[in-house]
């Protein structure tokens, strides 16, 4: 049997022919990065290759790194292996990484979604022999509602709170979800404030993809003058001190995990909005079918269940262990 084009090593997804890693989790010489989230784009590699939209975000998060920017579909060769990046629809700049050698093609999906969020460049399916896919939400219980319906729910929630003189605190991951929310929610109801971490991300992302500019929630913002505001904040600030100043407030999170009551209650939010930057079960199936891959490798999420499901549908699927862990608050 010939050697696989991509293999799973203890440092990351490795292409031995090109001596390059995809989204490596230990420091390596050369890394192709699918997107700028921390579990995929780590600190410490000598050289990075990423989509041009990811580059400023990676620099914002990782500091001074040596990074080569690529465009969608731009082909580049390393030791005779042809690589290219294709939109994955997950967050700004997120890419599938395609590798081809001697007529064999592998695609690593990174994280992705198929439904359009009207801000991120939509997913473009790539035909391949082996499709390495995430399956964060790879069970049929996850069926995403229509985005506009969810945005309407958020607006209603905010409006209702504002009418009661209550501040709305909406938690969403600072890269991806926060921009999606910033783009779709406008401050017609009451002021919309961004936590400084999110504000900083929005500034960077704005440089590659324009965003409406909302107000920054810094020390000087007086809660009394902003009753009924909507604050978008990173999930890890749920227990932070600054929140106390905003009493009375209600909390909510925008995440795919909010689809289940158990997950919402475990995280202690008042309300959950089902809004994910990952595909739901049907989107995963559509992506797998569209890839026309002969075999599928499931990397993170409900890998065992999802690969068993694919096998039951006649698609050869295996699992591989990676540390691409959905940070509990990420999606």
């Amino acid at each position: 049997m010939k050697d696989p084009l991509l293999e799973f090593s203890d440092k990351g997804i490795y292409c031995p022919k090109a001596d390059v890693y995809l989204d490596p989790w230990r420091p390596v010489d050369k890394a192709i990065i699918s997107h700028a989230h921390a579990d995929h784009s780590r600190w410490g590699h000598k050289k990075y290759i990423a989509h041009e939209h990811s580059v400023p975000i990676m620099q914002h998060r990782l500091g001074d790194i040596e990074v080569a920017a690529k465009k969608w579909g731009e082909s580049f060769s390393i030791n005779g292996v042809r690589f290219s990046l294709h939109p994955a629809g997950h967050i700004v700049g997120s890419s599938q990484i395609k590798a081809s050698y001697k007529g064999e093609t592998w695609v690593f999906s990174g994280d992705y979604k198929l439904h359009h969020d009207h801000y991120t460049t939509p997913f473009e399916p790539q035909k391949c022999d082996v499709f390495i896919t995430e399956c964060t939400f790879g069970i049929p219980a996850f069926r995403w509602p229509d985005q506009e319906q969810v945005m309407e729910q958020i607006r209603n929630w905010w409006q209702q709170n504002a009418a009661n003189g209550v501040t709305s605190v909406l938690f969403g991951y600072s890269l991806g979800k926060a921009q999606r929310l910033s783009y779709h929610l406008n401050d017609a109801i009451a002021p919309l404030l961004l936590h400084p971490v999110i504000y900083a991300h929005n500034e960077v992302v704005h440089s590659v993809k324009p965003l409406p500019m909302h107000q920054k929630l810094d020390q000087g913002v007086d809660p009394k003058a902003h009753r009924g505001a909507l604050i978008i904040a990173p999930p890890n600030t749920q227990d932070a001190q600054w929140l106390k100043k905003w009493e009375p407030y209600k909390t909510a999170a925008a995440s795919g995990w909010m689809a289940t009551r158990g997950a919402r209650r475990r995280r202690g939010y008042d309300t959950g909005f089902v809004l994910s930057d990952h595909g739901d079960f049907n989107e995963l199936n559509t992506a797998v079918r569209a890839s026309e891959a002969e075999s599928v490798i499931c990397t993170h999420g409900y890998t065992e269940i999802y690969s068993k499901y694919l096998n039951s549908k006649g698609i050869r699927a295996t699992t591989a262990d990676t540390p691409f862990e959905e940070e509990p608050n990420e999606s």
């Binding site: 049929p140 219980a141 289940t260 158990g262 499901y309 039951s312």
Partner: peptide, 26 residues
């Protein structure tokens, strides 16, 4: 109704944790 096999229903149920909720989601 969901067009899935029993084992996948059971796995899903065990993750969601509540039968009424699992069925509603599906």
């Amino acid at each position: 109704s969901a067009g899935i096999e029993n084992w996948l229903f059971e796995e899903t149920y065990h993750i969601v944790g509540d039968l009424a909720e699992t069925i509603a989601l599906l």
